[in-house]
Structure formats: structure tokens, C-alpha cells
Write a protein that binds this DNA or RNA. Structure first.
Lengths: 202, 202
DNA sequence: GCACGCTGTATAACATCGTTCTACAGCGTG
DNA sequence: CACGCTGTAGAACGATGTTATACAGCGTGC
């Protein structure tokens, strides 16, 4: 940062290669600390000790920054559902579901960024949508193994069953994060939702 | 505020009496036409042929306006799930589910306003949260009738089962509106989700 | 060793947003 | 008819996203 009260403003060239990650780290910190509304270009630049223009040089605009942030968040979500394959199908399925909810509750702002209104995941072709598909493929594999390799009864294909699973998980954590409906006993309700899925998909 | 303190109702200006609804109509039009980002205080005031101050006089601030708009939207959602009680339990349940999805697809921006990040429904005590509870109660009644008056097997109480239903409906339409996952054949997928609910709740 | 150009940075400026301030018009009341 | 209260209009303020302008660092030619 310029900083120096006296003397010529030190326009030191920051390490360009790191700037990308530095800005992304800063943006994620601001998001987690102050929410999506607090993520302004100026606030992120301040957090990263950089001029606001750095955001536009690296990410084009604010939307590009949020898109990159969503990719990061999706990677975290993917990691949360990608359970060790040595575990048996049903406990693995349950562990993945628990991991999904755990991620959302641990990083509510990041989860909201992913699925928030008009977010970057929706736009087909974006990096975020590619990572979103990666999460979807994990769900497909989980459902396939849970059903013993066959298409669960009553569904057109495994993808459709996986879509229903995602529907259930997302609906549950999104309503819980929003404080909508019955807020108490969400852990148990979630468990019973998973029970219903396991019963219906096997 | 004067309003109805005591004595005869002091006659306000005709323009004022209608201003509340005029502004709300304008805000809804702008929302449906240009999305939530387009709903600025100035744009709403322009649409309503009024100065921006009118919004602050009637709703306090932009948040108040959006809150009132969310109440309206919730009323529409409630109306969409409130099926005639003369219908038998299961078809009534299915009709309500279809009505839920139909409302969301017909008014995606209004639906997103209701459940969008940090929306007004989340804040307990707000008018919007009261109307949200009304929707929840309709779901409770639907589930109760579907299960023949008893608590569905495997659930702690009817409220928990209704919460699971809401979870499923919301997850489905929210992902569909966001274009996330399998976008093709959403109608059939939704149908199968409802099938799974009916099987698990009866 | 040194001037030059390219890349990317910092500063300042612009349009717009939410919100507030100030002055004024309309309507009921003495 | 004059007065006061309420709500309105217009300007103004701080903050935001974005763009334009000027300039510093670094590689490159001699």
C-alpha cells in the first residue's frame, strides 16, 4: 500500500502472480466475516492491501471475482461430499450427506454464494458450473453404489435419482440456513430426510 | 404517526391512501420485469410516478419495501398450495405440490425474493415470517391428512414430516430456477420426487 | 550502460445507488 | 381567513461499481 505520509507514494509493484490468490483470500475473508453485502470491490482491495483496480485487472469486474470465489466454495463442497470409497455404500452415502450439511453450516456465506440468486453456478459454461457438475457426479456415483449398480426403482435413470438427492440436501440446508420452518431439531429432521432417501433409492 | 389515534379518522389525501399499493404494484412490476437488482428506490418511484421520498414515507426504507413485497409474494405462494379441501388427501397433496412448483416457475423473481439470501422471511417476528408460517401450516395439514391423521411412520411429529416436504419442494424448485443439475425433464423428476414423498409419508 | 516500450498499477473521476436534509404545498382546524 | 401539521419534491451526501488518465517497474534493443 502507499501508506507513506511523506515522500513519494511508493507504487511498489506487487507480486503479480500472487495477486490473484491474495485477492481471492481477501474476498473469502470479507465474505465469511461480513456477508455478501460486505464484499465490495473496495473492501476486498483494502483487505488485500491493494488498489481497487487490482480486482479489475485480475477478474475483469466484481462478478468475475465472485465467480472465482464460487469456484473455490464449490471445490470445498465437492471435497465435503467426496467420501473415501473404501466405505460401504450406505454409510458412505450417509457420510456424504452429513458432509454436505456440515459444509453448509460451517460456511453459510460460501454456500449462499454458490446457490444465491443469479449466482455464477447457474450460467452454463462458466467455471463454476463445471465444478457444480463435479459435485453432481459424486452424487450420481453415491446413488449408483447405494442402489447396487442398478437404477433405483421408480426413476428414469441414476441422474434423475441423484437430482432428487441433491434437491433434498439443498432444500434442507437452504431452509435451515434461512431459518425457515421448524428450526429446532434440524439435525434429527435431516437424519430422517436421509432415511427417507435411503429407503426410496435402494 | 397519526392514523387512528382517537376521534374521527382524519381524512388523508386521496393520493396518499393509494400510494402504498401503487408503490407495491410498481415494485412488483419492476421486480418481475428486471429482476431484484433492478428494484431500486428510484426505479420504483419512477414506475409509480412519485418522488423517491415516497418510498421512505410509506415503507421506511428499501428493506421495508422489499419486506412488504415478500409478504405479497408469500400470500401468492400460500394461495397456490391452499387446495380445495373437498379433494381427497393424496390428490390434494399432489395438487398442492404442483401448485407450489407452478407458482415458483410463474413468478421466479418473487419466489427468489422470498427465499433469497437474508430475505425478510428469515427474520422472526416480521410480517413475512408470519405469512411463511401460514404456508407451513398448510403443509402440516396436507401431511396430516395424507397420513390418515396419524404421524407418518419414522417421524417425530407431523411438523417434522411437513418440514421434510417443504425441504423437498423448495430444493426442487430452487435448483430448477437456478438451472443447477439436470435441467431437462424437470417436470418428470418433480413428479418422482412427489412419488417418493407420498410413499414415505403414508 | 542506457533509452525505449509494454505491462500493469495507483489515483482520480463519473454515474448510480440508498439515504437524509431542507423547503414547500395541500388540507383540516381555530 | 390565517395557522399548523403532514407528507411531498428536489437537492445533497456518502458509498458503490466502473472507467479514464498518468505513471512506475521491468524486459529489450542497441
Amino acid at each position: 500500500m502507499s501508506a507513506g505520509a511523506a515522500g513519494p507514494p511508493s507504487r511498489r509493484r506487487t507480486a503479480s502472480e500472487r495477486l490473484h490468490d491474495v485477492l481471492l483470500d481477501a474476498a473469502q475473508d470479507v465474505l465469511d466475516r461480513e456477508g455478501l453485502a460486505g464484499v465490495t470491490v473496495r473492501a476486498v482491495a483494502r483487505e488485500a492491501q491493494v488498489a481497487p483496480m487490482g480486482v479489475y485487472n485480475r477478474f475483469g469486474n466484481k462478478e468475475g471475482l465472485l465467480g472465482a470465489l464460487a469456484v473455490r466454495a464449490l471445490h470445498g463442497l465437492w471435497h465435503a461430499v467426496d467420501v473415501d470409497r473404501s466405505v460401504d455404500p450406505e454409510p458412505r452415502f450417509r457420510q456424504a450427506c452429513d458432509g454436505y450439511r456440515h459444509f453448509a453450516l460451517a460456511h453459510p456465506r460460501r454456500y449462499a454464494l454458490i446457490f444465491g440468486g443469479g449466482g455464477p453456478v447457474a450460467r452454463t459454461g462458466s467455471k463454476a458450473s463445471v465444478y457444480g457438475h463435479a459435485v453432481f457426479e459424486v452424487l450420481i456415483e453415491l446413488v449408483q453404489d447405494l442402489a447396487g449398480g442398478r437404477t433405483p426403482q421408480g426413476f428414469a435413470d441414476v441422474g434423475e435419482a441423484a437430482q432428487v438427492v441433491w434437491t433434498a440436501l439443498h432444500g434442507a440446508v437452504h431452509l435451515e440456513l434461512g431459518g425457515i420452518g421448524q428450526v429446532s431439531g434440524s439435525q434429527d429432521t435431516y437424519r430422517r430426510l436421509i432415511d427417507l432417501l435411503v429407503r426410496g433409492l435402494r
